[in-house]
């Protein structure tokens, strides 16, 4: 019984230690207290920003909204394109280089291009994150479809499954890999969203909040905004993880 309680608490041990070290650094004045406020101050800034006053909650909401739009757009484009490319190995091989090339290009390198194409509006940031995310999704979905086990499709065929049912087998086969792509894509979309909010003249968003608080030397506010982006990234990952466990229960087995 006792060890069970310990097992449940285990994931928090690291958190407690980290906060302890942080508090110790502040107490012992190892780092300039202006640069590193205490955990208490920081978390109260998070609380105030999110629930009482200030723009943190608004910026948080804006980033969530745009990141979700970017991920949704990337999914809507990436999944069908990935399926089509993956359905024929020859087709995929002929565009593989392009996909690999752009996948390897740091997506922030295309910021200026996207500014030229779509202007400085907030939709540009959605396009940028969708661009980065969709490449990750296309790549993974295509590989998922290509690597669908031939035996399983053959088995469906000899049991009399019509073409549409066989296609369904391929899609289900590719689902675990598709989810890997979605998770990678979501993480990338968030990175690109925060970065473009910092660099592309945003009027709101977590990226802007971090940038502004730093300019104003409001360190608790800056840490609060950084913490919120971490929370957002972690929640996104958790969301995909739980969805995958629920709907793709056979993944990796």
């Amino acid at each position: 019984m006792k060890s069970k309680t310990l097992d449940r608490l285990r994931p928090f041990i690291g958190v407690v230690i980290l906060i302890g070290i942080w508090q110790a650094i502040v107490t012992l004045k190892i780092v300039d207290p202006v640069l590193l406020p205490s955990p208490g101050k920081t978390f109260s800034a998070v609380y105030t920003g999110l629930f009482e006053q200030g723009r943190l909650a608004f910026d948080f909401g804006k980033t969530v909204e745009r990141a979700c739009m970017g991920i949704a757009l990337a999914t809507v484009i990436g999944v069908p394109v990935g399926v089509i490319l993956g359905a024929s190995e020859n087709v995929y091989r002929s565009v593989e280089f392009i996909i690999d090339f752009f996948r390897s290009t740091p997506a922030s390198a295309v910021f200026p291009l996207f500014l030229l194409l779509f202007g400085v509006g907030e939709i540009t940031k959605v396009y940028i994150s969708a661009f980065g995310a969709s490449l990750a999704i296309i790549f993974n979905v295509a590989y998922g479809v290509m690597n669908a086990r031939k035996t399983r499709v053959l088995a469906a065929k000899i049991m009399g499954a019509p073409p549409l049912q066989r296609m369904l087998v391929v899609l289900l086969e590719s689902l675990p890999q598709t989810f890997i792509g979605l998770r990678m894509g979501a993480t990338l979309a968030l990175v690109l969203m925060i970065t473009s909010e910092m660099l592309l003249g945003a009027i709101d968003g977590l990226g802007l909040r971090i940038f502004e608080e730093q300019q104003l030397f409001n360190m608790p506010g800056m840490y609060a905004a950084i913490f919120c982006s971490g929370l957002l990234g972690y929640t996104l990952n958790l969301f995909f993880f739980i969805t995958e466990r629920r709907f793709v229960h056979w993944a990796g087995r």
């Binding site: 086990r149 035996t151 399983r152 088995a155 000899i158 087998v169 289900l172 229960h249 056979w250 087995r253």
Partner: peptide, 15 residues
């Protein structure tokens, strides 16, 4: 007709 594959792991549907 019925056909049983050598590799049952790849022949059954895990979903």
């Amino acid at each position: 007709f019925g056909y049983v594959f050598q590799n049952y792991r790849d022949a059954l549907f895990p979903w």
